[in-house]
């Protein structure tokens, strides 16, 4: 990847607290216009990494570059090009949604239209309400709105949809897609793997402070990890056969049994299945080794 095309460049990044390395040699790049998801369990180093890139934390060693700048030395001009949605917010909220957005819009040279942003996050009905009176999910939407009000080139989203109801989540996805269409580069962390699968072009899986897998979302972990499984019930037990040719397996199964197989399904691994394999917490049923018949307790 050409460095000039990268909005984020992280190389051998290390963050230590005393003897403990929270980030331990992580490397990845994000291309301009790309949406990159950083996935990993709690405590894996996701938030520390993202906060180093946002300029909130100093790194111990390694390279970190955001829009060509060392985030530890980011100027106001640099901040004008960023949008940051932090993980949590517990602010007093003594401004209305519209007041807050109008106020923050003033900080930026070319802000978005306030009412348009309010509509984009679906808070039209709450625009005149004090933020402290909103529900958790609604406050989270205000956070997102504040992150995009300045028309950022690069948007950091640290678990943005926590507390969203399903409809708000879908709406958020639409919003992110429209930001992508405008060319906004996005770094996303999330615990919702379906969200990462929906939004991200590429993803990196971080565990123990380093990147254990990186690539296009639907190739993460290699082709093997995405092998479909044929499942059916036979003599009271669940059977599973992982194969790249599920049609042939089903046909063979049908002719062997002579009847319609019970509970037949062809399952393609989701990003969540692949992710769980990658961080070593996978259930035995989704282990990547099996192209063989195995019996699974029903």
């Amino acid at each position: 990847m050409d460095n000039h095309q990268s909005v984020v460049r992280v190389h051998e990044l290390v963050k230590r607290y005393g003897e403990r390395a929270v980030v331990d040699g992580a490397s990845f790049e994000i291309a301009r216009g790309e949406t990159f998801a950083l996935l990993g369990p709690n405590g894996a180093g996701k938030s520390t990494t993202i906060e180093i890139l946002e300029g909130y934390r100093d790194r111990t060693s390694g390279v970190a570059e955001v829009l060509g700048t060392d985030p530890g030395k980011g100027s106001l001009d640099w901040k004008r090009r960023l949008g940051i949605v932090l993980q949590s917010s517990g602010e007093t909220g003594n401004a209305t949604v519209r007041e807050q957005l109008r106020h923050f819009a003033r900080f930026y040279p070319a802000p978005r239209d306030v009412d348009e942003v309010i509509a984009a996050v679906g808070l039209e009905a709450q625009a005149g309400q004090l933020i402290r009176k909103l529900s958790g999910g609604q406050r989270r939407r205000v956070d997102v709105a504040l992150g995009i009000i300045g028309r950022p080139e690069l948007l950091f989203l640290d678990e943005p949809t926590t507390g969203f109801d399903p409809e708000a989540r879908r709406r958020f996805w639409d919003l992110i897609r429209s930001l992508k269409a405008e060319g906004t580069s996005i770094l996303l962390t999330t615990h919702y793997l379906d969200e990462a699968a929906q939004l991200a072009d590429r993803a990196g899986v971080i565990a123990g402070g380093s990147i254990v897998a990186i690539g296009a979302v639907h190739e993460l972990g290699g082709a093997e990890a995405w092998t479909p499984a044929v499942r059916w019930r036979e003599e009271g037990r669940m059977h599973e056969h992982r194969t790249t040719t599920p049609g042939a397996v089903v046909a063979a199964l049908q002719s062997r049994l002579g009847v319609e197989p019970q509970g037949l399904e062809i399952v393609r691994p989701t990003l969540e299945d692949v992710y769980l394999q990658l961080i070593g917490a996978a259930e035995p049923t989704t282990a990547p080794d099996a192209a063989t018949d195995r019996e699974v307790r029903s």
Partner: peptide, 20 residues
């Protein structure tokens, strides 16, 4: 509902005093 206008309107930096 979720579409955003891509065009930027003003381009100069707001001053520290005006923001104050």
């Amino acid at each position: 509902m979720t579409s955003l206008t891509a065009s930027a309107r003003r381009q100069q930096h707001p001053g520290a005093l005006a923001l104050g």
